[in-house]
Design a protein around this nucleic acid. Structure first.
Length: 211
DNA sequence: GGCCAGGTGTAAA
DNA sequence: TTTACACATGGC
């Protein structure tokens, strides 16, 4: 019986979906790259994000200082595979510049940034903000995405807002290791939904008989 | 050829 | 305060 987010966490965990994925699911979690990935992955497959990250690395501009200062045209060419390249390139560059001016460096940013500060940045909405907090800053914050909404909906819950769904997901967890458990929780949901999409989600997936 | 992918901002109803 | 649409690419 699943009543809380923590119940769902335990149920999904039994399916062992992250066996070959690295710890905490997001590649290079808790590093600067998470910031770039969080924006690049908006409405885009992660495979495209990886192409863009390789391009940035090959051009030696995958750092806070370089991205803040580089020619926007070069940035655009690097991230083109991820789509929405005009908006994303500008948003990434402005974010980097604002981090330097408000926090000096990425370490201070990790320690001090607030959700409100992130949400005030152009191109960062609730999901990107929470992804940066969870996977970039190791904060005990649950990332809620379309998959999370679809899964809980298939299990019979409906939530009014992003915040309501997020609060339900975090119910039942204790503070110990919260940041890392929630990081895994979101990753497991994504992997689960990739595996059981569409009709399979309702008809044959392991979780939908639970409730 | 249409739909989707680890969303967000904006304008109109 | 909701809803609809644009933003862009590549794979199926």
């Amino acid at each position: 019986m699943i009543d809380t987010g923590h119940d769902l966490y335990l149920a999904v965990q039994k399916l062992d979906l992250l066996e070959k994925s690295p710890q905490f699911w997001w590649p290079n979690a808790y590093t600067f790259e998470v910031l770039v990935g969080a924006i690049l992955t908006q409405n885009t497959q992660w495979k495209r994000v990886e192409e863009s990250l390789i391009n940035l690395r090959n051009n030696n501009i995958l750092s806070l200082e370089s991205l803040a200062a580089t020619e926007i045209e070069l940035l655009i060419e690097c991230i083109r595979p991820s789509g929405f390249f005009k908006a994303k390139s500008k948003n990434i560059q402005t974010l980097c510049q604002n981090i330097i001016s408000d926090f000096s460096d990425f370490y201070n940013f990790q320690q001090e940034v607030s959700r409100e500060w992130l949400l005030s940045q152009r191109g960062i909405g609730p999901e990107s903000a929470d992804a940066i907090l969870c996977y970039g800053c190791e904060r005990g914050v649950m990332v809620v995405d379309k998959y999370t909404q679809q899964l809980t909906s298939a299990l019979g819950w409906e939530f009014e807002t992003y915040d309501d769904l997020q609060a339900w997901c975090m119910e039942g967890f204790v503070d110990d290791h919260l940041a890392r458990e929630l990081a895994l929780f979101h990753g497991m949901i994504v992997e689960y939904m990739k595996r059981y999409k569409k009709g399979a989600l309702v008809e044959t997936s392991p979780l939908t008989s639970v409730r």
